Simulated assay, not measured.
Amino acid sequence: MQYVITAVGPDHRGLADPIVHCVTQLGGNIAEIQMYDHDEASVFSMLTRVELDPAHDATLRQSVAEISERTGLSIRTWVPREPGRRPRLAICCTLRTETPRAVLTAIADGTINADAAAIISNRQVCRGLADEFNVPWHYIGDADGSVDDDRLIDICDELGVDYIILARYMRILPPSSCWKYAGGRIINLHHGLLPSFPGMRPYHDAHAARMLTYGATCHFIVPELDAGNQIVNQTTFTVAPGTPRDEIIRRGEQQNEPACLVEGVRRVVDGEVALHFNRVVALK
């Protein structure tokens, strides 16, 4: 069985060794390992992907808990494909309802073979979706939309979330959050074609460049790297010359973006693609 172990915490010597030794002593095979030291912040981050006999599951988790207690590291052990268990999704959103609604609808009709564990938002706009789809609502913002990033991670931990879906969630996750759920567990919808049109206003930028093709990008979030290189799905639509920008944005937000995110999430949940050494690989 494959396990993904992530560790984040105060930086000092000897943090990686006990995790590596724990895995190898149990006969596990290390398929991927990444480490990063945030020197200025004195923060250590690590991801280890291992193959291990599931008979050692309890021992692994107990050992990891002891390492966490001894080192002060925040450690998570995740099984990407756990037999007999449907993946659990946390759907994060801000102001747009179209993309989270599309994901919730796809879960309800079986297109996405997963369960919606929570809707998490820094605004109250999408709260009605929680009532409509009978999904727990978690508000983590304040009056100006600032976010309690630690609370977001706490909610996902408490609910046993497998994947965090950023469905037009208009806040940037800090590196520590990205590392805690590293390994292809955070899926983002960007409302433009990457890498050509990054930033907050891709429709405006593409329109200013006199583009006739617009699109959206579903990609894995990867800490410490430029977002968008780990593309899972892209969808496009073409307009006629002279089409007003507002009409282009309307078509993108209401039709193209939701379809792009649903297909991207489906590919990940169905195990068609995964992240390995920060690259998307096809598994089927």
Results as ranks from 00 to 15, higher is better:
residue 65 A to Q: 12
residue 81 R to G: 00
residue 22 C to F: 02
residue 220 F to G: 06
residue 216 A to W: 04
residue 254 Q to N: 14
residue 90 A to I: 08
residue 248 I to E: 03
residue 173 L to N: 10
residue 181 Y to C: 03
residue 6 T to S: 08
residue 184 G to D: 09
residue 216 A to P: 09
residue 175 P to M: 12
residue 99 T to L: 07
residue 194 L to D: 02
residue 225 L to Y: 12
residue 227 A to G: 08
residue 246 D to L: 05
residue 119 I to A: 15
residue 61 R to G: 05
residue 172 I to P: 12
residue 30 I to D: 01
residue 213 T to G: 12
residue 280 V to E: 06
residue 110 G to M: 02
residue 80 P to G: 09
residue 248 I to C: 05
residue 237 F to I: 02
residue 227 A to M: 12
residue 186 I to N: 09
residue 133 F to E: 04
residue 217 T to C: 02
residue 134 N to H: 15
residue 244 P to T: 12
residue 112 I to Y: 13
residue 172 I to D: 06
residue 151 R to F: 06
residue 219 H to M: 08
residue 277 F to I: 04
residue 236 T to Q: 10
residue 70 R to T: 10
residue 282 A to R: 08
residue 20 V to H: 11
residue 34 Q to M: 09
residue 107 I to L: 12
residue 201 R to K: 15
residue 225 L to W: 13
residue 170 M to T: 07
residue 133 F to V: 11
residue 72 G to W: 01
residue 78 W to S: 11
residue 107 I to F: 06
residue 128 G to K: 02
residue 26 L to F: 00
residue 89 L to T: 05
residue 222 V to M: 03
residue 65 A to M: 13
residue 3 Y to R: 06
residue 1 M to I: 06
residue 197 F to V: 00
residue 41 A to P: 00
residue 60 L to I: 03
residue 167 A to N: 09
residue 233 N to A: 15
residue 248 I to Y: 02
residue 219 H to R: 09
residue 245 R to S: 14
residue 213 T to E: 03
residue 44 F to D: 00
residue 228 G to A: 03
residue 221 I to H: 07
residue 149 D to E: 15
residue 174 P to S: 12
residue 122 N to Y: 08
residue 269 V to A: 12
residue 21 H to Q: 15
residue 242 G to S: 04
residue 237 F to Q: 11
residue 161 V to K: 07
residue 199 G to W: 01
residue 275 L to I: 12
residue 94 T to P: 14
residue 212 L to M: 11
residue 150 D to E: 15
residue 87 P to Y: 07
residue 33 I to Q: 01
residue 227 A to Y: 02
